[in-house]
């Protein structure tokens, strides 16, 4: 049985009559990296603020380790570490003293742990400098350090790679994976698709405060998202005609000299190929392509009707 460390049930936020987060539900499993993906203004940060109790929840429930955030805030927050938007630190103190601020008030943070975390985010060289001398990336690192201090089992990072250099992003990704392997649930938000694809196990796509869908990040999972490209030597339009005559429900598209079919399992691929061959069409290559998360994301969040089309099956 999978354990859920963070659960949102129909969480809604309304500010002055405007619904910013609308009936959002999802559960994060123990040891998974869960992504919140959405365009600017989708409501990612608002959702995170509700989870950590910075703003009130208009409707719905948030459970952290099965504790209701609204009813039992102190217990719920004990094993949560978070960065909400940019980590804001005390400029007039050193990085170390900033960390000490949080180390002091969180349970069971030892001196070894503090040193360990500093080393982890690679800030040893500057930890005794005033934070006002830090670069954006250094602040982000310190922010990550404070979120990790008390070994949270729910780690929530809002745009954690913001300001990090490639090495920093790479290190963070590896470290988050390590944490997840050891049972920590990690929630990251971002509008950077490629990054989410590399980092997360599952991604929730959010738009206008609503859940569009939740995707497992694997190579080729859902049939819907697999496209088969038939390389045709000859008349592509004729090939398209052949297939649509055979099955009118097929979604077909022509790109250059490729006929792209949205489908389907191996059996249909073989079948389609046979139809083409029988019609005397030269198929010089067949390729399966999974839609990248980026393609899916753009497709789903682009303005216009098909957002809702995609959203409907998820909500059923």
């Amino acid at each position: 049985m999978t354990t859920h460390t963070l659960e949102l049930k129909n969480v809604t936020k309304r500010i002055k009559g405007k619904t910013i987060v609308d009936g959002l539900s999802f559960s994060v499993r123990e040891g998974e990296i869960f992504g919140l993906l959405g365009p600017n203004g989708a409501g990612k940060t608002t959702t995170i603020r509700m989870i950590v109790g910075l703003i009130s929840i208009t409707d719905g429930e948030v459970l952290v380790n099965n504790v209701n955030v609204r009813q039992n805030y102190e217990t719920a927050m004990e094993r949560v570490g978070a960065i909400v938007e940019n980590p804001q630190l005390y400029d007039y103190m050193t990085g170390y003293k900033n960390l000490m601020q949080y180390a002091r008030i969180m349970p069971d943070v030892t001196q070894e742990r503090i040193d360990e975390v500093i080393k982890l985010v690679d800030l040893e060289y500057a930890i005794h400098d005033k934070v006002k001398t830090y670069s954006l990336g250094m602040r982000q690192r310190l922010g990550v350090a404070q979120a990790l201090l008390h070994k949270p089992n729910v780690l929530i990072l809002d745009e954690p790679t913001n300001g990090l250099d490639p090495q920093g992003i790479y290190d963070l990704r590896n470290y988050l994976r390590l944490l997840a392997n050891n049972g920590t649930s990690v929630v990251v938000s971002s509008h950077m698709l490629a990054e989410m694809q590399m980092m997360c196990d599952r991604v929730a796509i959010i738009q206008n405060g609503k859940m569009v869908r939740i995707d497992e990040i694997t190579n080729h999972d859902e049939e819907k998202d697999v496209k088969v490209h038939f390389h045709i030597d000859g008349d592509v339009h004729q090939a398209k005609q052949v297939l649509s005559d055979g099955d009118t429900s097929l979604v077909l598209e022509i790109i250059g000299n490729e006929l792209v079919v949205e489908t389907a399992d191996n059996k249909t691929i073989a079948d389609l190929n046979r139809q083409l061959v029988l019609a005397g069409i030269l198929v010089v290559g067949i390729q399966r392509k999974t839609k990248t998360l980026e393609e899916r994301f753009l497709e789903m969040t682009k303005k216009g009707g098909n957002v809702n089309e995609v959203a409907i099956p998820v909500n059923k």
């Binding site: 950590v52 109790g53 910075l54 805030y73 102190e74 217990t75 719920a76 927050m77 004990e78 949560v80 978070a82 909400v84 938007e85 940019n86 980590p87 804001q88 630190l89 005390y90 400029d91 949080y102 008030i105 969180m106 349970p107 404070q146």
Partner: peptide, 14 residues
Amino acid sequence: SKGTIKMLLIRPYS
């Protein structure tokens, strides 16, 4: 104004 309040309020304290 510095935004540090949010780092403080997300701790396990009412």
